[in-house]
């Protein structure tokens, strides 16, 4: 039954066995095409397994247009250095810590340092580990290291 497959999927995730997790997610999807949890698990497992191309193709071939994969899609596009497309995919997203961090990383690669620094300043109160590393990098690159 599908519950056993999810149990197996969960165990692989806990053990960081991401390629196995993808296989089990596919087994779920063969029984329950479009299962939202299975698709999400597959996409995240592929990203964790560093198979960005397949994560993106999984999102794009998803039969569930109601599921919002915009953040995952934007992240994959960022990893592929398709920065303008990544920005487009983020636009539909609610602004939160995750989308702001990704946006700042995209802006950094685009060389838009002032916009990048603005985001880091907004995130300062959020106490994100290692945020200051990226914040300082953007200030140095912008020639604003005295700040």
């Amino acid at each position: 039954p599908i519950e056993d497959l999810f149990d197996s999927l969960n165990k692989h995730i806990q053990r960081s066995e991401f390629e196995q997790a993808v296989k089990v997610a596919d087994q779920v999807l063969s029984i329950a095409p479009g299962d939202e949890d299975a698709i999400r698990c597959k996409v995240v497992a592929l990203i964790r397994a560093d198979d960005i191309d397949k994560a993106l193709s999984t999102i794009q071939s998803s039969q569930r247009p109601t599921v919002d994969f915009s953040f995952f899609k934007a992240y994959c596009l960022y990893r592929q250095n398709k920065l303008d497309e990544a920005v487009q995919s983020l636009k539909s997203q609610e602004r939160n810590i995750a989308t702001m961090l990704l946006e700042s990383q995209i802006l950094y690669r685009l060389g838009k340092m002032d916009a990048c620094i603005d985001i880091y300043q907004k995130l300062q109160k959020s106490k994100i580990e290692s945020l200051e590393i990226n914040s300082v990098a953007s200030l140095i690159t912008a020639g604003r290291s005295s700040e």
Binding site: I2, E3, F6, D7, L9, N10, I13, E36, D37, R40, C41, V44, A45, I47, R48, F71, F72, Y75, Y78, I97, A98, L101, L102, Q105, Y108, I128, S130, L131, I133, N134, V136, A137, S138, I140, T141
Partner: peptide
């Protein structure tokens, strides 16, 4: 240019499967 960490990666999370098992 200085190295920037991929902090967004930490927000790529699995869904909870609690109620699916």
């Amino acid at each position: 240019n200085p190295i920037v960490l991929d902090l967004a990666y930490n927000f790529i999370d699995f869904p909870s499967l609690e109620n699916r098992m």
